[in-house]
Simulated scan of single mutants.
Amino acid sequence: MKVLLIIHRQQARGQELVASQLGEEFLSRGMEVRVVSLYPGDFSLPFSGTISCLNLHSSISVWNLQKWFEFSRWVADFDPDIIQANGGDTLKFLALTSFLLPQKAKRIFNNGGVMGYYLKSTFQKRLNAFFLSRMNGLVSVSDYSRSDLDKLFNPTVPHQVIPVSIIPPDQQETDNVEFTWIHIGGFTPEKNHKGLIAIFSEAVKQGIEGNLILVGKGPLKPEIERQVDRLNLEKRVRFAGALIDPWSMISNRSVLLLPSAIEGMPAVLGEALCLGVPSICYTIGGVEQLLKEFPSLIGIAPGQSKSFVTTMLHLQKNWDFHLGKSMQDKKRAQQFFSISRAADDFLNFYKKL
């Protein structure tokens, strides 16, 4: 089987990482896989095969007819059985180019987010309904993501939930016993960095130990840097940038903070679970599904920043108890988020189309 995976950009974000890891697993099984990136990027994704780039420069260029024909030539050269769009503008681009592609290739949209969060106008919804109508199959990362998409568009093509998969990251043993509060995610509105800094600022006032490390990059980073300066947190908040292996730099007493506005099923939460790292998160989107699966996760009602702070202080005071619960979930998490499991699920879905 030949599979062509389309990603938004070569960057350290969930959809791109998951897609490249899935492609690498397919390669290890003897399949032919190629990755096409719509926009240029400089992050080294974990995929040893060919990554081509269409070099689009804005969302408007997704409508560039010349790029459609360029992509269609790549498809004709590779002759894939499956073309899978993975987040960002990939659904839009695959739908628009679908009229130029061979009917043999089944078109899949891998829905890793919550579309209803982004689509506000009737025009946006109708346009995306058209994009989805050009797909042969849909995959959603969580029950919540599937329910959201089904409610908005009522699609008639096969639609399956395949939970996010990860390759458990390396975590180096360190002698650092100081607390590390860590957040991993792009600086975009849905990740709620502004709310996170406000939470951490209040926790500092109440005597929280340790520093906050922010891993990632994105358009809102300058605004968050200014917020950190205004709150005099320069010595307590570190901007680490986009890292290939962020977990290798943290201390042995680390906690993931995830007060997101919306999430499909965050891969970073899966990574924390697979490492036995305690996590505190808002109970939004697909996070609720994970809370049912893993007792060690600590969920806070969305927007309840005071409760978030109180929970941070309680977790720090009762560290051994919470670490023990997280370690109990570790083995089950590694099975739940297994890349091998996900590859099997995708292949079985492909065969049904």
Rank of each mutant, 00 (worst) to 15 (best):
F349H: 08
R34D: 08
V255G: 00
L212A: 06
Y117L: 07
A343F: 02
P222C: 10
D89Q: 12
S145R: 00
V3K: 02
A129W: 06
K306M: 10
I213V: 15
D329R: 09
F43M: 08
K106Y: 05
Y282Q: 01
L127W: 10
R29H: 13
L127V: 12
Q172L: 15
P168K: 10
R332Y: 14
N154T: 09
F308V: 09
K120N: 14
L56F: 08
L243C: 12
S59I: 14
M249A: 11
Y39A: 06
M115G: 00
I6T: 02
Q206A: 07
F99Q: 06
P155I: 10
K331W: 06
S48K: 14
A203N: 08
P102G: 14
T310G: 13
Q289L: 07
F78C: 03
R253N: 13
E202S: 14
L347G: 02
L258F: 04
F43Q: 06
F47K: 03
R226A: 15
M31R: 09
V114Y: 01
L45M: 13
S254D: 03
F69C: 06
R73E: 13
T90H: 04
K351H: 12
F308G: 03
H183K: 03
N348V: 09
I300K: 05
G137D: 07
E70I: 13
G14H: 05
I244M: 14
I298N: 04
E24A: 11
N154V: 05
Q171H: 12
P40F: 07
G113I: 04
G276R: 06
S254A: 15
P246W: 01
G186F: 00
L257Y: 02
R253P: 04
V277M: 10
S98Y: 04
M31Y: 13
R126W: 14
S326N: 08
L119I: 10
I213Q: 11
V18H: 02
S305H: 11
K217I: 08
G195Q: 11
